[in-house]
Amino acid sequence: MSLARLLSDQHQRLEELTVLLSREQTLLTQGDIDGEALASLAMNKQALLADIERIETLRHSVQKRLGYEESADGARAAARDGNCQDTWETLLEKTERVARMNELTGQMLSLRMKHNQEMLDYIRQIAEKTLYKPDGRTRAQSGRINASA
Rank of each mutant, 00 (worst) to 15 (best):
E36H: 09
A37R: 08
A39G: 12
N44Y: 02
A47R: 01
D51Q: 14
I52L: 09
E53N: 14
E53Q: 14
R54Y: 09
I55P: 00
I55Y: 01
I55F: 00
E56P: 02
T57M: 15
T57H: 15
T57R: 15
L58D: 11
L58I: 01
R59L: 10
V62D: 01
Q63P: 10
Q63T: 15
K64H: 11
G67A: 06
Y68P: 01
E70Q: 10
S71I: 08
D73N: 09
G74F: 09
A75Y: 06
A75K: 06
R76C: 09
A77E: 11
A78V: 10
A79L: 09
R80P: 02
R80T: 06
D81W: 02
D81H: 09
G82W: 07
N83W: 13
Q85E: 15
Q85I: 13
Q85S: 14
D86L: 11
D86R: 12
T87M: 11
W88H: 07
E89F: 03
T90F: 10
L91S: 04
E96L: 10
V98P: 00
A99W: 00
R100T: 13
M101S: 07
T105M: 08
G106N: 00
G106S: 04
L109W: 14
S110Y: 10
L111N: 14
L111F: 13
R112V: 02
M113R: 14
K114M: 12
K114C: 02
N116R: 02
Q117L: 13
E118T: 13
D121C: 03
D121L: 07
D121I: 06
Y122W: 08
I123Q: 12
R124Q: 13
R124Y: 08
R124G: 04
R124F: 09
Q125L: 01
Q125W: 00
I126C: 12
A127K: 14
A127Y: 00
A127W: 00
A127M: 08
E128I: 06
E128Y: 11
L131W: 03
L131F: 05
L131E: 13
Y132C: 01
K133N: 12
K133C: 05
K133P: 00
K133L: 15
D135W: 09
G136K: 06
R137P: 05
R137W: 04
R139P: 03
Q141S: 13
G143R: 06
G143A: 14
R144I: 07
I145K: 15
I145F: 03
A147W: 02
A147C: 02
A147Q: 11
